[in-house]
């Protein structure tokens, strides 16, 4: 049964409990103490040892239908999107990255040889190779917990249910109801990001999708992400023609040398 996350950014309070729960459950190491100067975000970005990341955006535009003194503070808990067409999985040459029985994307650490091709394949900049470890790591959607019928640590820890875990179809229904409710209340800018193939054809939909209230760029999300292999046909056609060019050049060189 396909499982995933629906992250509703309008109820995120930026507590970072998801980040802590993820680190603690998965026994991930810390990333050092760093002050970034980027609002309350001292995590920076997702990476090999950071599988949840809360972003903070201080926006000088009020939220629709709200009286917030001309400001709106947007917060979003970012995570691996577990794409239907996953660039990392399609690029992986060893078969280390697999799709699980829960329709999630999982990196098998005992197979990964650290070639780094998934890192450039991900249109969201999620997966990364760890320097000290040599292998690629990302959110597993708590594969170990799912197998025990438990919800992922981040969703469990989220105090406002900004992170909802469940079966994708149920999440779609809940998300659409939520958008309608917000529109009724005057938050006209609310929309779903990556909910299905029609709204995001490049990934054919995300198993971890979001409700946003501003352009994707504001949250550091790409406006039109695409699994790279979807564009490969043109590249292979050119490569075929160019290889023919090599053959012709070789023939020209050999035949032209007779004189």
């Amino acid at each position: 049964m396909p499982k995933g996350f629906f992250t509703d950014t309008t109820v995120c309070i930026g507590c970072k409990a998801c980040e802590v729960a993820c680190k603690q459950w998965n026994q991930l190491p810390d990333d050092g103490m760093q002050f970034t100067g980027m609002s309350y975000d001292n995590t920076g970005h997702l990476g090999g040892s950071t599988w949840r990341h809360v972003s903070f955006i201080e926006r000088p535009v009020p939220m629709g239908g709200a009286d917030t003194a001309g400001m709106a503070w947007l917060m979003m808990s970012d995570v691996c999107k577990h794409c239907q067409r996953a660039g990392c999985l399609e690029n992986c040459p060893t078969g280390a990255i697999i799709r699980t029985e829960f329709d999630t994307v999982y990196v098998q650490p005992d197979i990964c040889n650290g070639c780094g091709y998934c890192v450039v394949g991900c249109p969201f900049g999620v997966i990364d190779r760890l320097h000290d470890d040599g292998r690629a790591w990302k959110c597993t959607l708590c594969y170990d917990r799912l197998k025990e019928n438990m919800e992922p640590a981040c969703a469990k820890a989220c105090p406002t249910d900004s992170i909802l875990f469940g079966e994708i179809e149920d999440l779609h229904v809940k998300a659409r109801e939520r958008v309608e409710l917000l529109h009724e209340r005057g938050v006209k800018e609310a929309y779903l990001y990556g909910a299905d193939a029609s709204s995001q054809p490049g990934t054919e939909g995300l198993n971890a999708f979001f409700l946003l209230t501003d352009k994707p760029e504001v949250y550091n999300l790409p406006p039109d992400p695409i699994a790279p292999a979807k564009k490969a046909r043109e590249a292979w056609t050119s490569a075929g023609l160019a290889s023919l060019g090599l053959l012709i050049a070789a023939a020209g060189a050999v035949l032209g040398s007779r004189r």
Partner: peptide
């Protein structure tokens, strides 16, 4: 730390790796 409306990025951080 304020978002620029016309040409937004997330603190000029890279989107991809």
């Amino acid at each position: 730390p304020t978002v620029v409306e016309s040409d937004p990025t997330y603190y000029d951080k890279p989107v991809i790796k």
